[in-house]
Design a protein around this nucleic acid. Structure first.
Length: 340
DNA sequence: CTCTTCTA
DNA sequence: TAGAAGAGG
């Protein structure tokens, strides 16, 4: 979920093609969760192989990643490690929401309410340990680097971006900005047309880019103030103040610091605010990672997707063929360079 | 989500 | 041939 900075932050609509030749560190859990929740049948059933294993995430990861590569984008994926202890409340809360959604899904199915069923099925999506393991194997076979974060993936991705090893972080959540990512790309794993809930209309979802420096300059705050705003609104690590959203948080933080507000007794937090701020300012990351792009291993891909999970061999080969074709194109030197 | 097939 | 609809696993 992450912090809701939505309307405050200045963003720039872009085309995927604008990112040709750019390296991007994608928040793996974020992407996998999106695939798992979106790739479903009308009644909410995910894709499954003959052994009843869910495969929606693999389908999304494979086709989306090869499409990005086809355009000439150079992705790597960052996986989460142990969540900070302060996240446990959020984790529990999400579990409960999923349990409720699961019940409602089944009820809606029995009542024959397809759209309702799908909605609750999506909310019930749960990324399991084995899904993550398989996703890593798939990315390995694709020759895409996988970085294992010690703690929060967004924090690690932000660090990799700060080091200049990638152009941008890719995630739906704004948290990466609080972690100090110089650039954030949203909507790069979900694009195209999306149905507006409860309405029969579709909106075009386009990739958007946020540059941390210009975004905070625009609203005239520092990164530290942005973090304080996040804490007021609520993050994965603390409950926000009731009734305070992006707009009010900005006004409050501009008036005086969080520390002063607390001292005056205006706001109260269960956790020491300095501890919260430290999660974002000095996150647990590793400097020990390597981004090493390799050619894909067709045999391994066939083994994982076709032999193990019943994907059509023809479709896999088609996807790889398209990749080859785009790689042969003249104007994509940057893509070729990455294999040398 | 992306891909293939159907339809005007 | 382009856009909608359905399938994929």
């Amino acid at each position: 979920m992450g912090v809701d900075l939505g309307d405050l932050i200045e963003k720039q609509e872009i085309e995927l093609e604008d990112l040709r030749g750019k390296k991007i560190a994608i928040d793996a859990l974020n992407a996998i969760y999106q695939f798992l929740s979106i790739i479903r049948q009308p009644d909410g059933t995910p894709l499954i192989d003959s052994n009843k294993n869910i495969t929606s995430h693999l389908s999304g990861l494979f086709y989306r990643t090869t499409r990005l590569m086809e355009i000439g984008i150079i992705p790597c994926y960052v996986f989460d490690g142990e969540p900070p202890k302060l996240k446990s409340a959020t984790v529990e809360e999400r579990k409960e929401i999923r349990r409720e959604a699961e019940k409602k899904w089944k009820a809606a199915l029995e009542a024959g309410e397809l759209a309702e069923a799908r909605k609750y099925a999506q909310a019930a999506s749960r990324v399991t340990e084995s899904m993550l393991e398989e996703s890593k194997k798939l990315l390995n076979a694709l020759g895409i680097p996988v970085v294992q974060a010690p703690s929060e993936g967004e924090a690690q991705a932000a660090y990799i971006c700060q080091q200049g090893d990638v152009y941008s972080v890719g995630s739906q959540d704004y948290d990466a900005l609080l972690f100090g990512a110089p650039r954030l790309l949203r909507n790069i794993t979900i694009t195209g047309k999306r149905k507006v809930p409860r309405k029969n209309i579709y909106v075009e979802v386009k990739p958007e880019m946020i540059e941390l420096d210009s975004a905070i300059k625009e609203i005239e705050v520092t990164r530290e103030q942005l973090i304080e705003m996040g804490i007021l609104i609520g993050t994965d690590f603390n409950e926000g103040v009731k009734g305070i959203g992006p707009k009010k948080s900005l006004a409050h933080i501009k008036e005086k610091s969080l520390k002063e507000w607390i001292k005056e007794g205006k706001f109260e937090f269960e956790v020491d605010v300095e501890v919260l701020k430290k999660i974002f300012l000095k996150p647990e990351i590793t400097k020990n990672y390597s981004l090493n792009w390799q050619p894909y291993d067709q045999e391994k891909l066939i083994e994982i997707l076709h032999e193990k999970h019943d994907f059509s061999k023809e479709r896999i080969e088609n996807a790889l063929e398209k990749l080859e074709k785009s790689r042969g194109a003249k104007d994509q030197k940057s893509l070729q360079e990455w294999f040398r």
